[in-house]
């Protein structure tokens, strides 16, 4: 059960530039830290974030261990057609979360 907060406009004018912001609850454990038992804590990070607009990719990024916990991503896109924006986070330990928001373009 992942927790995500997405901020995208519900409506936009055709051709307008819209900002999409997404925040996800994730520890982003680097894999370089050791626990109280002296053993390394296994790496657990989000490796990749992708965003699609009606199944066409509009934004993607690779994440590294240096990115803080609960990563916040903000990006821009041109509103071309109404539809669904899908945001997808994948990472270590079979982490996979998808969130979608609808946007109406007029």
């Amino acid at each position: 059960m992942a927790n995500v907060l997405v901020n995208a406009p519900k409506t936009a004018k055709r051709g307008a530039v819209v900002e999409i912001k997404a925040l996800i609850l994730h520890p982003m454990e680097t894999g370089f830290r050791s626990g109280t038992n002296g053993q390394f804590i296994p790496r657990n990070i989000v490796e990749r974030f992708t965003a699609t607009w009606n199944d066409a990719e509009i934004f993607s990024m690779d994440m590294s261990p240096a990115i803080s916990a609960n990563p916040f991503v903000s990006f821009f896109a041109v509103a071309a057609e109404s539809g669904t924006i899908r945001l997808r986070w994948t990472g270590d330990q079979d982490f996979a979360v998808e969130e979608q928001v609808a946007i109406a373009v007029e």
């Binding site: 927790n3 907060l5 901020n7 925040l23 996800i24 609850l25 609960n70």
Partner: peptide
């Protein structure tokens, strides 16, 4: 101030669950 940028709101969401 922005409820979708404030990471504390993630925990508020957890709390509501």
């Amino acid at each position: 101030d922005d409820d979708t940028a404030n990471p504390g709101m993630l925990f508020v969401q957890l709390g509501s669950q």
